[in-house]
Amino acid sequence: MKILAMAEKELREYVLKPGSISWGIVFPLVFTLAFAIRFGDVDHLAPGLLSISVLFGTTSFVSSSVIFERRLRTFERLLVAPVGYFEIVLAKVLVGSLFGLFVGFTSLLFLRPFTVYGVWNPWLLLLFLTLSAMCFSGLGLYIALIVENPINAMTWLNLIRLPMMFTSGAIVSLLLFPHWFLAVGLATPMTYSVEGLRFSMLHYYDVVNPLYSLLVLLILTLLFLYLSTSRLENLY
């Protein structure tokens, strides 16, 4: 119940903050549209673009809420209340994921006119979208909690997000890079989101079997939840 209350508060308070809007909604949608208009049929790009939208949507929302809360010190309200650190983390990840799903579905709508094939398996797509959103929310939360000065969170995030767009094979398939680059690809959390989405939408994958993608996304989500919780414990 407290998790839901915290999640509802987050949505009301932060959906309209500049960080959520610019990096969380405008950037991914403009990016998606730009690719769609430039290349016409974007069936093979669609999973990557979708993953990028979810990545930017979730991380921007979560980190901008944490930045505001740490700067205005409303965060201390949660820390001094009788709620567990894990509940606080879950609430953040929950709203981040919802926001990410919203941005993801909007991207999907934008992409629809530029794709020839329909989605192969909508339920699998929903599963991978949700897992991606949770994993990326956890990542965004962890980054926003470890930076000393919350103002720097966006900069740090972009240092991670922008390279991931390439090392995950979201835009150019990992198969087209030199062989050694595959290692970089496999070390990129986003790769598993792109591969999972690709399988659910197009019924094929480039490098990672969808079952592994599912597993890795799940493990990464739990890892980020754990890291964020223990960071909160030591932040106090």
């Binding site: 508060k9 009301r12 308070e13 932060y14 205005l72 010190r73 409303t74 201390e76 309200r77």
Partner: peptide
Amino acid sequence: SIGLVPDISNLYEEL
């Protein structure tokens, strides 16, 4: 069992 009024008024501005 405690209530805290911190040195700055820190409630949620948009609410």
